[in-house]
Design a protein around this nucleic acid. Sequence first.
DNA 1: TCCAACCTTCACACTTGTGTGAAGGTCAAG
DNA 2: CTTGACCTTCACACAAGTGTGAAGGTTGGA
Lengths: 123, 123
Amino acid sequence: MRIGALSERTGIPRRMLRYYEETGMLVPDRCANGYRDYDEQSVDRALQIRGLLEAGMPTRVIKQVLPCLKATKAIHIPGATQETMGILERERDSMSERIDTLTRSRDAIARYIDTVRGTQEAA
Amino acid sequence: MRIGALSERTGIPRRMLRYYEETGMLVPDRCANGYRDYDEQSVDRALQIRGLLEAGMPTRVIKQVLPCLKATKAIHIPGATQETMGILERERDSMSERIDTLTRSRDAIARYIDTVRGTQEAA
DNA sequence: TCCAACCTTCACACTTGTGTGAAGGTCAAG
DNA sequence: CTTGACCTTCACACAAGTGTGAAGGTTGGA
């Protein structure tokens, strides 16, 4: 599929899809005429990238982390250096912290909303 | 407490604390000599701000959301406009999405790590 | 054949969050 | 009174993510 189609299916601007390629996060094949050629998997992958970017993860890290998100039971464990594993573990932990922070804040907001709604109802 | 002390207690650079003030997220009192004067609560507040920033939430939104995180049972519900409530609800939902994305990714990374560890152990 | 709708690369520009440092005020301790 | 460790504001700089658009190639249908 070409970039326009992927863009429509994901809602991600063409510009951003090119940026994902430029940073090595999502590199499509190329047709003979030079057009980008994305496979079906790219849909999920692009959405995942956007989600992580929105969650504040820098492209550098996304690039390192994405391979693990493809297939857990695949052949990988390729150049699974001790160093790579360390990076992944640190990333896992910092993600957990972020999740906690976000969850606490979201719950507080939700409580607030419920409180206000309750008060207004009672009034 | 002065900015240096808050910086040391939170690990947040002075520069950033000033930035938090500039953007209206954390505005301290001022001493007679012009020095910033932070109260005890500012410690938690600053940490919360940093957490949300790291989670990709823009200052604009943090500013809107922070008041709800202070005290759920306080007098607020001040200018709780219909519009404000809408913003909060949308923010709550988008936070939930982020949490889901992060959680899925983190779990995948954790599984990957465990798989590799298991494989290496077995080898 | 030619137009419309795609695609390409390239480049400028803006916002945000952050680092760094200059120029200068305050204040306590020697 | 001076020195050192704070503080102030201001400003320049940079990377990342994103928008916009120019200049030009490809291709399918009227």
